[in-house]
Amino acid sequence: MLKLINITKSFGDNIVLKDLSLEIESDKTTVIIGSSGSGKSTLLRCINMLSEPDAGIFSYKDMTLNFSDKLDRRLEYKFKKLTGMVFQGFNLFPHKTVIENIVLAPITVNSIDKKIAYEEAEILLKQVGLFEKKDQYPHELSGGQQQRIAIARALAMKPDIMLFDEPTSALDPEIELEILKLISKVTKGNFTNIIVTHNMNFAKEISDKVIFLEKGQVLAEGTYEQLNTSDNVRIKQFLNTIG
């Protein structure tokens, strides 16, 4: 279980996360929804340490990170390495082939033997269905294919927690479903998934829990059904708009 306790994050005068607390169950898929500017992406980036919270506590397994105190950098790095991130814009390395994109971090960061890293990458490529593209460059692939590779790249680091930051927002609706199925196929049950999305299909199809974020705070949480039948005016309004 990953616990976030009283997390605060602001950029200048703009307070993005306000004393936010939530619990994320291990090996389950949590979907975070909310309108633009509600703090969804910032929350994800805080968990990945791309931006560090100003205050609050992360608690995961035997680790406790207290951002209000001076941080133990080594512990922070240890936690960061337990997370993998998939971005809205894929962010594949353009100067590396598909398979090089996947093996680069395991070889460089984890000092894994080259041969083993390539073997593992090939297995991942088969899982995401793009083995035949292994020697091509990212620009030769479609958006959907690039995102599949980005997912494989994150999985290659064997994280506990997979973070998806609007993974289908840059793709057309048809591909969206494909990526959704893939995420479900390659991660479900084995990873703690946290997915930030505007797409209610994610919540409907693969979430164990949905968190509705509003102005940097948790407005509601529960299963998709619970949220869908909620009486809360704001949630109803939100669900109606994005349909």
């Binding site: 960061k80 997370t83 962010n91 680069l104 994150a154």
Partner: peptide
């Protein structure tokens, strides 16, 4: 692009590793 720095950072690269493997080649 910022996305390249973030992708490398998210994968756990140190600053020097990120420079040599990701940023400087580009």
């Amino acid at each position: 692009p910022t996305g390249q720095w973030e992708a490398a950072e998210a994968l756990g690269f140190s600053y020097i590793q990120m420079m040599i493997k990701v940023i400087l080649p580009q």
